[in-house]
Write a protein that binds this DNA or RNA. Sequence first.
DNA 1: ACAAAAGTGTTCAAAGTACACCCATGA
DNA 2: TCATGGGTGTACTTTGAACACTTTTGT
Lengths: 240, 240
Amino acid sequence: MSGERQSRANKEDHPVETAPSMEDRHVASVAVAVDVVPFGLRDGALHAALVRVGHADEAGLFAFPGGRVQPVESLDVAARRCLERHLSPTGSFLEQLYAFGEPGRDPSSRVVSVAYLALVPQTEEAPGVHWFPSSDLPPLAYDHGAVADKALDRLRGKLAYTNIAFGLLADGFTLAEFQKVYETILGRALDRRNFRKKVLALELVRPMGRVRHGPHRPAELFQFAQRALTTVETPLTKKG
Amino acid sequence: MSGERQSRANKEDHPVETAPSMEDRHVASVAVAVDVVPFGLRDGALHAALVRVGHADEAGLFAFPGGRVQPVESLDVAARRCLERHLSPTGSFLEQLYAFGEPGRDPSSRVVSVAYLALVPQTEEAPGVHWFPSSDLPPLAYDHGAVADKALDRLRGKLAYTNIAFGLLADGFTLAEFQKVYETILGRALDRRNFRKKVLALELVRPMGRVRHGPHRPAELFQFAQRALTTVETPLTKKG
DNA sequence: ACAAAAGTGTTCAAAGTACACCCATGA
DNA sequence: TCATGGGTGTACTTTGAACACTTTTGT
């Protein structure tokens, strides 16, 4: 917060400002953008959505969807706009991740980017959007490699202590599918019985009273009890 | 990331840009600032450092130290500069907290501010800096009330699963002082015996082989085993 | 019938929680 | 000597971890 006024106030109290203020100059010294890291499941594996960078230094590379923050919109709104420009599903989970602001991160101009983590349930195809396995991303433009790392860390961290998985699964999933989400993202196997016990004891998911018929014994279908981010006290993922 | 180039690239692929780009205009549409929330202990209670806002709409109110990000400095560097302008101690713990960017948060101009959490061990006096109990802050300028809330949440959260307390205590503290940090910030009492057992078992702190003499039995002095942020697997704070 | 995935319970180990007494010192 | 805070150990409860067999269906 503060910004212009804060800056002025500080100078009055403490004249040792390190550099002259940019307030009255007619060029933008630092621009603000958002970048959105959209995760989704494809074939049971975690994928991230990327778009191609069209030209200049980074031409041909992939990057996460993003763009400038407009003068009248909040960061959250800008992030959702950038997400929905490429991927239709509204109501996707979206939360702020981290602000990246190294001076050299965009070689052509000084841009501070606020990164967002997005989860999209059904990874439908969309023009210009390329889905890559999160464990095997192509070379990325700017510092989007670091952005991807941060997003994955955040997702892993929240998986253990929240119901964030609701962002990846539409209601009507089997417990095996649910467990596979955890195993995929955490990169380790979990015990079927303990997993079931825990997610039911925590009332994270609820049986819907329907079953899905496959080649073998039908599986009960579940839905999330809450579709808003909820923190649980006991971790979902030690081994079970 | 991305910013200018990203924005252009997107427009090429998807002409449905919501608003005309600001790239070539000669005014900054959105400015970037940092604000630092410095926490420290005074009389065993958690306090936050504030400075007065000098003029204009927010005149007379308090705010966290902050200022514009300069064209050549990273966000982290800008935050440390703003912190050290007011509080001398170098080496304080400093980590990015959250980016605040509601259009109306600064009534005089559009400023996106990246907030930082700082922990300063010895809350020495400094000119123009006012320390307030974190539970009883004065009216704050801008949206610094929300910033303070976020900072406290972060501190509480990390207290349970990291050694972040090293930022508040200089080496050579007693276990009673260490425990009081936890009790103060969490707002609940802990069991002395269990607390000692846990922090020693986790090798969070180490006895220094020295004691402090007070009015009664001398207390053993401890130091942190690591003075870098370390995550522990088992929570430090359920009751013990 | 059988292959394949779904569903279920018990035992053991580890961690968390509660709790009360003695110790060492300065005054 | 005594008041005050410092230091320690044990029993109990809860949670986590490991583990194998039966069930249901489609083919």
